[in-house]
Design a protein around this nucleic acid. Structure first.
Lengths: 318, 318
DNA sequence: TTGAAAGCGCTAACAG
DNA sequence: CTGTTAGCGCTTTCAA
């Protein structure tokens, strides 16, 4: 029994002859190791949960891809879990009454508060993704949203834009993501001596191109005037493009537009989207590094890491 | 031990008093049932694999979402597996040397041949998704691609289009998906007395908007002339829109464009995309129905089911 | 209605 | 280097 186990797992101290004999039997019988047995015995499942709002949102889909590849490289598989950005959904993720299904979890909360996350004392190693306020006790990776938002805003200012709006944040309850991006946007305006104008903030009913288009369209129809839009994410930017196109405005001549996330389709819009590009590979590997350290027993304070980002200049805001 | 097990699983024949006593102990101790133990004992894992090329492709991301919700409603979780549309990737999925990790699998092959799939005698219940030729022995769900392609082509013909191209299939090796769509397209042309023109087939180097844009752009630049494009999928359509825009052609006035899959962003393009809309909910639930029957022991011939589809008319081909 | 015993398929510790 | 003996945490008989 043990010898077979050793052969299956490539344990070195097995004589070539025995190994070969066992292997032949394995092949003949079509034996497949049963994971559940192995995992019960070792206590490791080889599974990770990746939880976020909705795979149908391109950013998350691309994140899932990157995480899943990175996990696979470390011998892990990924279980996808969607919260629909609801409190219940997110609580369900943390509560998930069954233990031992996964060895660790990568979790991007949308609405849960830092304190509620902190209160959840679970034995499951967790690393948080994204900007939602993370408790000091929990690891987290994000990009520097404030800095990136300031960069993109500065880029517009340098191109001569003076009335710069912001599109796509939630209302009335701002997500931490939106808050940080708006902070960066505002600080860049102020640093250039421009007056932030609350009338140039255009919230969207949901994270979707359709709602962003509706918001920008309504603003234009009631006479709002701006020469650039910083969008919370690429979906909002795509919606903004659509609303502007519909009303015959030229992009970027009349209004420059920037997105965020640099999703695959960003370059295929017309005009193509200038966008903040988080380094997903770095983000995923930093997150997994910390998660594996936790799984290996590390029990220190929460580490908060910053993943790099870039700004990809395209036609919508050259 | 057994009594606790009974309480945990809500087995009815436990006295109220005992149940209450056990429950209190569970709460105090923070006991969580360990899935691996349960699953080893029952032989069921509660896990399903969903395998396809790439979650970064919007259609697959949306499919993942629908499947994952439908599976959850039946008490199952979904393990995501990507093949990158490579033969090795797909073989790896079928071979996956460990048994017992999942109870069943939904698999959308991209390149594997029907015979190779058939040859793979595995004890794992499988249902195939999509058009790739499926062996008679294996269950499969798809939409009627030939019919849908004919419908969309007829729609263009009815709108007065006469030189209708097809965009986005592979070259030189056509996928079964593309083959069926081209068949439907061609049959609608012929039925209207239009001459199919091989010069109006514009293959794309990959399933991506960028390559489709390059293909359509190159065709236009070498003088190809057409008044409508049936695109293999929405990504190809988005690429086609881009190439047409770049060259100052009006859509739909000069060229009408149709997509396929009706991804979320289809309605947000400018102009918004007319698209074939597969009924993903129906597709997922039919697939899961058959999969659960297999998991329950059904061992008959492969069932080949057709899920419904619609045609969503939007600005690009009203 | 409750409890005792056996075993799911594997690995870890130990002995030979 | 190989084999034996105990579990991992649960469920499933089967008795009490």
């Amino acid at each position: 029994m043990k010898t077979v186990s050793n052969v299956v797992r490539d344990y070195p101290h097995v004589s070539a002859r025995t190994r070969e004999r066992v292997q032949r039997a394995i092949d003949e019988l079509g034996y497949r190791p049963n994971m559940m047995g192995r995992r019960l015995a070792t206590g490791k499942t080889g599974l990770l949960t990746l939880a976020f709002a909705d795979v149908g949102i391109p950013y998350f889909a691309e994140l899932a891809r990157v995480v899943s590849r990175a996990a696979e490289a470390r011998g892990y598989r990924v279980l996808l879990e969607e919260t629909d950005a609801t409190l219940d959904g997110e609580r369900g993720i943390l509560a998930s009454s069954e233990a031992g299904l996964v060895d660790g979890m990568l979790f991007q909360p949308s609405v849960m508060s830092s304190t509620e996350i902190a209160r959840h004392r679970s034995d499951l190693p967790i690393v948080l993704l994204g900007e939602t306020a993370a408790p000091l006790t929990v690891d987290r990776v994000m990009i520097d949203n404030v800095a990136a938002a300031a960069e993109v805003t500065r880029h517009l200012i340098a191109a001569g834009r003076r009335r710069i709006g912001f599109v796509g944040h939630e209302e009335p309850a701002l997500s931490e993501t939106s808050r940080q991006r708006i902070m960066g946007y505002q600080s860049a305006l102020e640093e250039a001596g421009l007056q932030p104008d609350a009338g140039l903030l255009f919230p969207s009913a949901s994270i979707s191109a359709a709602d962003a288009a509706a918001a920008v369209g309504a603003a234009l129809d009631r006479g709002a005037s701006f020469d650039a839009l910083v969008c919370r994410d690429d979906l909002a930017a795509i919606g903004a493009l659509r609303a502007l196109h519909e009303r015959g405005l030229r992009i970027p001549e009349d209004v420059a537009v920037t997105g965020w996330d640099d999703i695959r389709l960003a370059g295929m819009m017309f005009p193509s989207l200038t966008s903040v590009a988080p380094d997903l590979d770095a983000l995923a590997s930093q997150a997994l590094d910390m998660l594996f350290e936790r799984m290996a027993g590390f029990d220190g304070m929460g580490r908060h890491r910053i993943a790099p980002h870039g700004l990809v200049l395209r036609e919508s805001a050259p």
